Lab assay of single mutants.
Amino acid sequence: DELVREILGRCTCPDQFPMIKVSEGKYRVGDSSLLIFVRVLRSHVMVRVGGGWDTLEHYLDKHDPCRC
Protein backbone atom coordinates (compact mmCIF):
# COMPACT_ATOMS: atom_id res chain seq x y z
CA ASP A 1 0.00 0.00 0.00
CA GLU A 2 2.69 2.47 0.99
CA LEU A 3 4.85 1.78 -2.07
CA VAL A 4 1.85 2.13 -4.40
CA ARG A 5 0.88 5.45 -2.78
CA GLU A 6 4.49 6.66 -3.05
CA ILE A 7 4.61 5.91 -6.78
CA LEU A 8 1.22 7.55 -7.39
CA GLY A 9 2.30 10.54 -5.30
CA ARG A 10 5.09 11.34 -7.76
CA CYS A 11 2.48 12.53 -10.26
CA THR A 12 2.20 16.32 -10.33
CA CYS A 13 -0.97 16.43 -12.46
CA PRO A 14 -3.98 18.39 -11.23
CA ASP A 15 -6.17 15.29 -11.78
CA GLN A 16 -4.23 12.27 -10.56
CA PHE A 17 -4.82 8.83 -12.10
CA PRO A 18 -7.13 7.04 -9.64
CA MET A 19 -6.07 3.70 -8.16
CA ILE A 20 -8.45 2.39 -5.52
CA LYS A 21 -7.58 -0.63 -3.41
CA VAL A 22 -10.31 -3.27 -3.67
CA SER A 23 -8.67 -6.04 -1.67
CA GLU A 24 -5.21 -7.36 -0.87
CA GLY A 25 -3.21 -7.11 -4.09
CA LYS A 26 -6.14 -5.86 -6.22
CA TYR A 27 -6.64 -2.29 -7.38
CA ARG A 28 -9.26 -0.62 -9.58
CA VAL A 29 -7.57 1.75 -12.04
CA GLY A 30 -8.80 4.76 -13.92
CA ASP A 31 -12.48 5.43 -14.47
CA SER A 32 -13.17 1.87 -15.64
CA SER A 33 -13.95 -1.27 -13.73
CA LEU A 34 -10.58 -2.75 -14.72
CA LEU A 35 -8.84 -4.59 -11.88
CA ILE A 36 -5.09 -5.03 -11.76
CA PHE A 37 -3.15 -7.41 -9.58
CA VAL A 38 -0.19 -5.92 -7.71
CA ARG A 39 2.63 -7.47 -5.72
CA VAL A 40 5.97 -6.32 -4.34
CA LEU A 41 9.05 -8.18 -5.53
CA ARG A 42 12.45 -7.11 -4.19
CA SER A 43 11.28 -3.54 -3.44
CA HIS A 44 9.66 -3.20 -6.90
CA VAL A 45 5.90 -2.83 -7.25
CA MET A 46 4.87 -5.26 -9.99
CA VAL A 47 1.60 -5.36 -11.97
CA ARG A 48 0.17 -8.46 -13.65
CA VAL A 49 0.08 -7.78 -17.40
CA GLY A 50 -1.12 -10.49 -19.77
CA GLY A 51 0.89 -13.60 -18.92
CA GLY A 52 3.69 -11.79 -17.12
CA TRP A 53 4.59 -8.95 -14.77
CA ASP A 54 5.61 -5.32 -15.36
CA THR A 55 6.61 -2.53 -12.99
CA LEU A 56 3.89 -0.17 -11.81
CA GLU A 57 5.92 2.79 -13.11
CA HIS A 58 6.00 1.34 -16.63
CA TYR A 59 2.30 0.42 -16.44
CA LEU A 60 1.42 4.00 -15.47
CA ASP A 61 3.64 5.40 -18.24
CA LYS A 62 1.50 3.48 -20.75
CA HIS A 63 -1.97 3.90 -19.19
CA ASP A 64 -2.04 7.19 -17.26
CA PRO A 65 -3.35 9.88 -19.68
CA CYS A 66 -1.13 12.47 -18.00
CA ARG A 67 2.06 10.47 -18.59
CA CYS A 68 1.31 9.20 -22.13
Rank of each mutant, 00 (worst) to 15 (best):
F17H: 00
G50K: 12
H44M: 15
C66P: 03
T55S: 13
G51S: 14
I36T: 08
I36S: 04
P65H: 05
D54G: 15
V45H: 04
V47A: 07
E57D: 09
D31A: 12
G50M: 08
R28M: 13
L8A: 07
K62N: 11
G30R: 08
V49R: 09
S23V: 04
L60C: 01
Y27V: 00
V38D: 09
V22H: 09
V38I: 08
F37C: 15
P65S: 01
V4W: 03
R5H: 10
H58V: 04
C11R: 01
V49N: 13
L8D: 04
I20Y: 14
K21L: 05
Y59E: 00
K62R: 12
L34W: 11
K26N: 08
L41V: 15
C13T: 02
G30D: 08
R48H: 11
C66S: 05
D61I: 08
M19V: 08
R48G: 09
K21A: 03
I36L: 15
P18S: 12
Y27H: 08
Q16G: 11
P65M: 00
E24D: 14
K26L: 10
I36V: 12
G25H: 07
G25T: 07
R5I: 06
L34H: 14
R67F: 00
K21S: 03
V49H: 11
L8W: 01
C13P: 00
I36A: 09
D31T: 14
R5Y: 10
I20D: 08
R48Q: 11
Y27E: 03
L60Q: 04
L60F: 01
T55I: 02
L35F: 10
L8E: 03
D1G: 05
L3I: 11
T55F: 09
L3R: 13
T12H: 05
V29T: 05
P14R: 10
E24T: 05
R10S: 08
Y27P: 01
S32G: 11
K62W: 06
V22D: 08
V38T: 07
G52D: 13
G51L: 09
G50Y: 06
P14V: 09
G30K: 07
R28F: 04
R10C: 03
R48I: 05
D15W: 08
S32H: 10
R39D: 14
R10K: 11
M46H: 08
S32R: 11
R48N: 14
E2S: 12
D54E: 15
F37M: 14
I36M: 14
C68R: 12
Y27F: 05
Y27N: 05
W53L: 11
E57Q: 09
P18T: 13
P65E: 04
C68N: 11
G30S: 06
T55P: 08
C13D: 03
C13Y: 03
E57F: 00
G9S: 14
E6V: 04
L35P: 15
Q16P: 15
L35S: 10
R39Y: 08
G9N: 11
Y59C: 05
D64M: 01
S23G: 13
L34E: 15
L56V: 00
D1C: 04
L3F: 09
S33Y: 07
L41A: 10
D15Y: 10
G52I: 12
V47W: 03
C66W: 00
D54V: 15
M19R: 06
G50D: 14
K21H: 07
G30Q: 05
V4H: 02
L60R: 01
D1P: 06
C13R: 02
R10Y: 05
K21I: 00
D1A: 05
